[in-house]
Computed example of a mutant assay.
Amino acid sequence: MFVVVTAAPTGLLVAPAFAVNPDEVLADPALEARARKLSEGLRCLVCQNESIDDSNADLAKDLRLLVRARLEAGDTDTEVIDYLVSRYGEFVLLRPRLDWLNLALWATPLVVLFGGAVLAVATVAGRRRRRQAPPELSAAEEEAIARITGGRG
């Protein structure tokens, strides 16, 4: 989200608009910096492509206030994130954690693609083998062909 601010009669200045309201800002600058850093990595569950720091949605405001309340209560950054993930799921993170479940999710298309390639190669190779080696006919089959074709075979 961006706000256009008139800088002079001849031009415009475009600046990012942050959704953090003045009443949300913590008095302690160090805690506020931590809250801002955490908020940048948390997804607005309403907007879904914005961080809670950038969103004007009511839920985003509630999450910003919750982050600040947890920090004021003495939680570490990791404890705040863990609390929000336990409450809203990993979808609340803009950058999901690297764990086995997420790795499996990202690796599955590659495994399927590799398996399909192996199956395609095996199928083509099998067809080539069958095409290259014509079957041997028995003596009875040779006689039957000669009889049908009148010896022109």
Rank of each mutant, 00 (worst) to 15 (best):
A7H: 13
A8V: 02
A8Y: 09
A8F: 06
P9Y: 13
P9G: 12
P9H: 12
P9R: 12
P9W: 14
T10I: 01
T10W: 14
G11T: 11
G11L: 11
L12G: 10
L12E: 14
L13H: 14
V14Y: 11
V14I: 06
A15P: 07
A15E: 14
P16H: 09
P16L: 06
A17W: 13
A17N: 13
F18K: 08
A19D: 09
A19N: 05
V20T: 09
V20A: 13
V20H: 01
N21M: 12
N21W: 14
N21T: 08
N21Y: 14
P22H: 08
D23T: 03
E24L: 00
E24F: 00
V25G: 07
L26E: 11
A27G: 10
A27L: 12
D28N: 12
D28P: 04
D28H: 04
P29H: 05
A30L: 10
L31K: 11
E32G: 00
E32Q: 07
E32P: 00
E32M: 01
E32N: 01
E32H: 04
R34T: 07
R34W: 10
R34C: 04
R34K: 13
R34P: 03
R34N: 10
R34I: 00
A35P: 06
A35T: 03
R36Y: 14
R36G: 08
K37Q: 15
K37Y: 15
S39Q: 13
S39F: 09
E40N: 03
G41M: 06
G41N: 08
G41K: 03
L42V: 01
L42I: 02
L42E: 07
L42A: 02
L42G: 01
L42W: 03
R43E: 13
R43L: 08
R43H: 09
R43K: 10
R43C: 08
R43P: 06
C44L: 05
L45W: 08
L45K: 07
V46I: 08
V46F: 04
V46G: 07
V46D: 15
V46C: 06
C47A: 09
C47G: 03
C47E: 14
Q48Y: 11
Q48E: 15
Q48G: 02
N49C: 09
N49G: 10
E50S: 03
E50V: 00
E50G: 00
E50N: 05
S51P: 04
S51Y: 06
S51K: 03
D54N: 08
S55L: 01
S55M: 01
S55T: 00
S55I: 00
N56W: 09
N56R: 11
N56T: 05
N56K: 08
A57P: 05
D58C: 00
L59A: 03
A60H: 04
A60E: 05
A60P: 02
K61Q: 15
K61P: 05
D62W: 12
D62K: 12
L63I: 04
L63R: 07
R64L: 01
R64E: 02
R64N: 02
L65Q: 15
L65C: 06
L65I: 02
L66M: 10
L66N: 14
L66G: 04
V67E: 12
V67S: 08
R68P: 05
R68Y: 07
A69C: 06
A69H: 14
A69S: 13
A69E: 13
R70K: 13
L71H: 02
L71A: 02
L71N: 01
L71G: 01
L71Q: 03
L71K: 04
